[in-house]
């Protein structure tokens, strides 16, 4: 199962509880992670996701991009995204 399909099939609750139906693994993400995860699931690009973060949180532009990249890295480490996945600038 490739990471793209996996991400699409993740069950994500409003509280940030995430269930991977392929492995049975569960995760908890904070509001920032939830915003990014939902954006990725819907196939949004970097600018869209950063825009969604700007709407919900008060931080600098560099912080949004760093949060996005770090979170994508965590998803890769958990096998939820392909190892070569990145959000294009």
């Amino acid at each position: 199962m490739d990471g793209h399909n996996k991400l699409r099939d993740l069950a994500v609750s409003d509280s940030g509880f995430v269930f991977d139906p392929y492995t049975g693994s569960t995760f908890s993400v904070n509001l920032t992670g939830l915003t990014i995860l939902r954006g990725l699931k819907e196939g949004h690009g970097r600018e869209d996701i950063v825009g969604e973060l700007q709407t919900g949180f008060a931080a600098g532009d560099a912080d949004y991009h760093r949060d996005l990249d770090e979170f994508v890295g965590q998803l890769r480490n958990q096998g939820l995204l392909p190892l070569d996945f990145s959000v294009e600038r």
Partner: peptide, 23 residues
């Protein structure tokens, strides 16, 4: 299909979760 999420010292599944694994 099930993945064990908690094992006893004998390696027996004390908790588990139904998973979707087409392969």
């Amino acid at each position: 299909a099930m993945r064990k999420t908690f094992l006893t010292d004998k390696g027996k599944g004390w908790a588990g979760i139904a998973i979707h694994d087409p392969v």
